[in-house]
Design a protein around this nucleic acid. Sequence first.
DNA 1: CGTTTCCCATCGTTTATCGATGGAAGCACG
DNA 2: CGTGCTTCCATCGATAAACGATGGGAAACG
Lengths: 107, 107
Amino acid sequence: MGNDLLPGTLDMLVLGSLTRGPRHGYGIAQHLKKISEDVLDVGESSLYPALQRLLLNGWVTAEWGASENNRRARYYKLTASGRKQLAAENREFDRMILAIQKVMSCA
Amino acid sequence: MGNDLLPGTLDMLVLGSLTRGPRHGYGIAQHLKKISEDVLDVGESSLYPALQRLLLNGWVTAEWGASENNRRARYYKLTASGRKQLAAENREFDRMILAIQKVMSCA
DNA sequence: CGTTTCCCATCGTTTATCGATGGAAGCACG
DNA sequence: CGTGCTTCCATCGATAAACGATGGGAAACG
């Protein structure tokens, strides 16, 4: 039931989910859903392509490991460059939101 | 230089530009650019398809007229249904923004 | 055992936006 | 009068992002 998220924000959301430490894909999806109180519902078919992008750009690294309960899982970790990217996307996002709100509050 | 706007928000922005009265396409683009202080830069090739969508959905109507300086121009006007749509999109947008900000402020 | 939960991932489709392009009509200027 | 700038319309093809459907394997759970 949770609606589509705003396109263009997925990479930022994923990077943001990794600031507190590495997570695996499934964990990222759950984290987003939980923190947003079910507003954001990222399907895995959106998530994994996003993670591929982030890997390609060097914004995260991946490492196989074991999840809390003995299952194999691929942990994604924010790199220094990823942190910069996150900051940049955040700034840009705020800029946009502000601009949009100016328009919306009429003037 | 003004960057891409957030995808998915264009319809809302266009509808929002019409709350104060009818405008023609070119005027909408200028209005957005001006109010947002050059942050939003909607190309006409993004704008006209959007206007077509809005027409198809009955959220705006179009009427030919003359612009301030003797040029032929097509004026787009918000309908009642368009006003409802705008309100709905606004609510949804706020919901998303709030959710995203929750994620971004860590937690 | 069978089912659920966890966790990975790909493929094909859809949809939005953009860049490039084209045209016509008024205006300003030399 | 011609040239070019601004205004205003619009379409087309490419690109990229996100989604739905789908598939599979391995641990845990009853």
